[in-house]
Nucleic acid binder design. Structure first.
Length: 201
DNA sequence: CAAACGATTTTCT
DNA sequence: GAAAATCGTTTGG
């Protein structure tokens, strides 16, 4: 079942980030279908969060997507070479987002290997926000796309993830955010080998 | 208009 | 473990 708009339009972005673990991210790019189970996410709580691009209500050409009604993709280029995939949540005017940081490959693994220029199936195929986008063919071309479309959506596997298997910790790469860097807004599936190897862990 | 800078990954030592 | 790769966005002059 594809997650409906109402899923993304809930109030609590932290809860949504947690709920997205175990869901299946599906892309159809250039006619080929690829998918994976979401195993790591981070919540970005809009204007009150120093780590968010929309902190303080900042609105620019890049961040305007974040102010859309929940259920669209926000994809931007990081460090000039990595496409990072976010899901926009909450309602219009509230720029909440969830960064998808890692997935466990499901369908189209051969395609992912080709896109990642790899010959064997290893965790490094999709164990980070930049590399999972590369594996799924996600680029800034999909920025602003609805998650109800045929090319990009998230579905419920129907298999519940046990709460005791979810780990909450601090976010990665946001040291500049001061006290907000200490918030437990990063979630991942315990012992899953596809969780990213963040610096300093 | 010029310059600095990342919500990262890879490669080399 | 350190450093490079690399470019759109943002910010300041």
């Amino acid at each position: 079942m594809i997650l409906p708009p109402s899923f993304y339009r809930q109030e609590d972005v932290v809860l949504i980030a947690k709920s997205l673990l175990g869901k299946i991210l599906v892309t159809k790019v250039e006619g080929v279908c690829t998918s994976g189970i979401i195993v790591e996410t981070e919540a970005y709580e809009g204007i009150t969060d120093r780590a968010s691009h929309a902190f303080g209500g900042k609105q620019t050409a890049r961040t305007e997507i974040m102010y859309e009604n929940g259920g669209v993709a926000y994809i931007y280029l990081c460090y000039g070479l990595h496409h990072l995939f976010n899901v926009i949540t909450n309602t219009s005017g509230v720029p909440h987002a969830v960064l998808i940081r890692a997935i466990e490959p499901l369908k189209g693994i051969d395609i992912m290997l080709k896109r990642r220029n790899k010959i064997s199936f290893q965790p490094s195929l999709t164990n980070g926000p930049g590399v999972l986008s590369q594996a799924l063919g996600i680029t800034t071309k999909l920025n602003g796309n609805s998650l109800q479309g045929t090319d990009l959506f998230i579905e419920d596997s129907g298999i519940p993830l046990l709460p005791e298997n979810i780990v909450a910790t601090t976010r990665v790469g946001v040291a500049y955010a001061g006290k907000d860097a200490l918030l437990p807004y990063r979630f991942y599936v315990q012992r899953n080998v596809f969780v990213s190897k963040a610096k300093g862990l």
